[in-house]
Design a protein around this nucleic acid. Structure first.
Lengths: 242, 242
DNA sequence: ATGTGATACAACTTTAATACAAGTGAGAAC
DNA sequence: GTTCTCACTTGTATTAAAGTTGTATCACAT
């Protein structure tokens, strides 16, 4: 008898989930059934499932069962230019100001992705002197070590890092302006903000950048245009957060 | 024997509907007959059918029977993951509650698009009794005149209106919960909210629907995943509002 | 100290069986 | 033609039983 059997079971289940055996929302066999399949007790199965729950792969409801978590769908917000492009088109000056540039212990939501220590940079983006975004970027320590503050002020991480971007996952949510951002963005505390969180992966699928963008709600919005007649019954890509 | 079967039955029926076995308007076997076919009780069959009704795939008339809904977009409805589908997959009850249904003078931002008078409906969407969205829809008067309150409670405007969708423009912004929405959504006033505004056009390019969706910020977020390696310097689709 | 197995109970969900109300439609009776 | 009846349908509610997760405890092995 091995001592950490539930990790092995978690690995196997992770594989089955990754193989597409259980598409999002599909109900998994009950703990009892899984226990029978793997000749393990319910306690062990539960521990394995709880590991996967911690990774966001599965979820459970009491009295109902375990099911594969709704995974983000591969759908982009079709179309428009970036904000920098818009600014350039309208002849406004775009500018970045660095307010923070240091190596720190990774915050909780970053550590599992990038490791224990990271380069944290905070920038304010301005259009014609008016701040319109606060962007915090966490960069993997080994990559961040090659960067200078001046470089980061001039260019984006995507241009600076010697890494090809493989994929990225991004969420758009709403939040309130906290006192720190209130000062940086020159808007009242507790006013509405668009919060974009993004994780960028290399071609191998390993994360190397995590960023958080905060936009004052009253001056920014996302625009998407659907040309085709594909259905969009409710806003696409929207999901319930945990 | 697994107890959770009505989702499986819903899946099978969804497949049969999608396969064209039941063209729009075709009457389905009665609940009793379906129960015999699938060796399930009437309750179970009913729950499955109600899931499909929530997706707008079927409808029923008391004393008459169930029939495939006359949906202008039957395929795409099932293909894409909306919040409702996510809810159904994880076994949550999805529900719409109408709080407003009347013909009114069009609000300022709607009048130029739809004309002077419009049908205004306000609905609250709930998941397991928990409200997660307030949706207000303005519909062109001549089209709205054909709709009943009960219809609107069950299905979406896209399914109900005899119009082919040509294109749509949508913005995602951030705002604060106002007192009215605070009551409807059961969240504190002045908390963060995602606000989605959409205008839908027919194939000629004329607008016929304007809608506004308000989601509590702490439980909802948009998810987008970028698979391609194209550069995205700042969040795509973001622009400065006027 | 930790992982594992076994057991027990609480809280919740689903299913089954049954009953009755209400609407539909077809044909019989007038 | 009109009305009535009857079989059949969905809508709704109630009970009981069984299944499932959530949580806790104890014993045992490594």
């Amino acid at each position: 008898m091995r001592t950490i059997r539930y990790h092995q079971i978690a690995d196997v289940l992770r594989g089955r989930l990754g193989a597409g055996e259980f598409p999002a929302g599909k109900i998994l066999p009950s703990e009892a059934e899984l226990g029978a399949s793997y000749s393990a007790s319910r306690v062990t199965i539960r521990k394995a499932l709880e590991v996967l729950r911690g990774e966001g792969l599965v979820a459970a409801r009491q009295g109902f069962g375990w099911f594969a978590a709704a995974s983000p769908l591969p759908q982009t917000l079709t179309g428009l230019a970036t904000i920098e492009r818009q600014l350039a088109d309208s002849g406004r000056r775009s500018e970045r100001r660095i307010v923070d540039f240091q190596f720190v212990a990774a915050p909780d939501h970053v550590r599992p992705l990038l490791g224990k220590r990271v380069l944290e940079t905070r920038r304010v983006h301005l259009a014609d002197g008016m701040p319109f975004a606060r962007v915090t970027v966490w960069c993997r320590e080994d990559l961040g070590a090659e960067l200078s503050k001046a470089q980061v002020e001039r260019a984006s991480f995507y241009e600076l890092l010697p890494i090809t971007v493989g994929s990225a996952a991004q969420t758009i949510g709403a939040g309130l302006i906290d006192p720190a951002d209130s000062e940086l963005l020159e808007v009242p505390t507790a006013s509405a903000a668009l919060v974009v969180k993004r994780t960028t992966h290399d071609t191998e699928g390993a994360a190397f950048l995590v960023s958080e963008h905060v936009f004052p709600g009253h001056i920014t919005e996302f625009v998407a245009e659907f040309q085709s007649l594909e259905a969009f019954v409710s806003p696409r890509g929207l999901r319930l957060a945990d």
